[in-house]
Design a protein around this nucleic acid. Structure first.
Length: 366
DNA sequence: AAAGGGCTCAACCGCACATTG
DNA sequence: TCAATGTGCGGTTGAGCCCTT
């Protein structure tokens, strides 16, 4: 038996709203508010509508400061970036675009932006190479997970949407190096980490202010005393060797630019989260990857060399493990971690501007 | 000018979560 | 603890508009 309907379907009006109905609803809410009860509102306002219908009409059309019409390039970029990272969580995406509704963004994505992207980035039309059996889909939204964002944020690393253009056929890093890395770093991971405390919630925020990377944040992957910072050649060589290209989700800055005087970042959008979340995210991710690597390695041993794709997947997972292994500088002095969601303009010391799309770059503030 | 196919977007639907008693 | 109810969300639908033939 299903749940009772929210209203009497037979006695409520459906379909497009008339100007009179709009006026009634608007006037009532501006005068009395919603009263915290949408179900009772239509009767009080003298409307023959379902409460849910009233709510939708108000939120998507009547409430103040709603913006309709053309989306700007900046909005396009934010939507694409967030969609690549968190999937079709339109309400979260809408929260980053003042005046836009989730319905608007959803419609815009489904009817225009997706097609536009398909045209400009032809690789999006292909199946992802990372998981050969899957079709192109954003990370699923797990309603049951205790921490929604971190769950999908974990997919940020373990799932590779086509935006990242990872070339799985390139595997020029010596296999024994990869295995050594896993053995050293992963063997102690035997159980998933406990989630961070509930009062330590993650927040999504956006900043249009300029951050001087030389001032108060370290723009590297890692810390000055971390031998694996992005500016050091081993990781850069690794990325180059593994065939990752511009546009992927990636940690670190380019070619030591931040060490040059006067460098700055602008138009930074970021996820702001605490050390606890960072640690949780990292450990959970490592645990998940290790599980998958173990499972696939076992498959590999059982099946031998008969199934080459399986081996490729294991190697890719190993690469992933290495990748994430460098994403957790759990330094005691760090107060805040900002995970940049969008591309940004990089201003070099000579005043030249170069556009980068290195989503996922971490900045550590301390 | 008419037909029909494609596109847009407001609105609906059903599900899951949150709250309340 | 549990059931009932309200809310929020993402997927889907379909009326009306637009464009092409």
């Amino acid at each position: 038996m299903g749940r009772a309907p929210c209203c009497d379907k037979a006695s409520v009006k459906k379909g497009p709203w008339s100007p009179e109905e709009d006026a009634k609803l608007k006037e009532f809410i501006e005068k009395f508010g919603t009263g915290g009860n949408w179900i009772a509102l239509p009767q009080k306002a003298g409307l023959k509508r379902c409460g849910k219908s009233c709510r939708l009409r108000w939120l998507n059309y009547l409430r103040p400061n709603i913006r309709h019409g053309e989306f700007s390039d900046e909005e396009d970029r934010i939507i694409c970036s967030l969609y690549a990272n968190i999937g079709s969580r339109w309400s979260v995406i809408a929260a980053q675009l003042p005046g836009r509704t989730d319905n608007d963004i959803k419609n815009y994505w489904n009817t225009k932006l997706k097609k536009k992207l398909m045209t400009t980035v032809p690789s999006l039309q292909e199946k992802p190479t990372f998981f050969p059996s899957s079709t192109f889909q954003p990370p699923p939204y797990d309603h049951h997970a205790p921490d929604h964002f971190l769950t999908t944020s974990s997919s940020f690393f373990t799932y590779t949407p086509n935006f990242m253009n990872v070339d799985t056929t390139s595997n020029s890093l010596p296999v024994h190096d990869i295995n050594n890395h896993i053995n050293v770093a992963a063997d102690h991971i035997s159980s998933p980490p406990p989630p961070p405390s509930a009062n330590n919630l993650i927040s999504l925020m956006r900043s249009d202010t300029t951050i001087d990377v030389n001032d108060n944040c370290n723009n590297y992957l890692g810390f000055p005393d971390d031998p694996h910072t992005m500016c050091n050649s081993p990781m850069q060589a690794y990325y180059a060797a593994s065939g990752m290209k511009e546009g992927m989700l990636m940690f670190g800055s380019t070619a030591c630019s931040s060490s040059e005087g006067g460098s700055s970042l602008s138009h930074v959008s970021h996820v702001n989260y605490t050390k606890d979340h960072h640690q949780y995210h990292y450990q959970k991710n490592q645990y998940q990857i290790k599980q998958e690597v173990d499972q696939m390695t076992l498959h590999d041993q059982v099946l031998g060399d008969q199934i080459q794709t399986q081996s490729l997947m294991v190697n890719q997972k190993r690469k992933e493990f290495m990748f994430t292994n460098h994403v957790s500088p759990l330094h005691n002095d760090v107060e805040e971690v900002k995970l940049n969601l969008n591309g940004y303009l990089f201003h070099d010391g000579d005043g030249n501007k170069t556009t980068h799309y290195q989503k996922g770059m971490c900045s550590y503030f301390y």
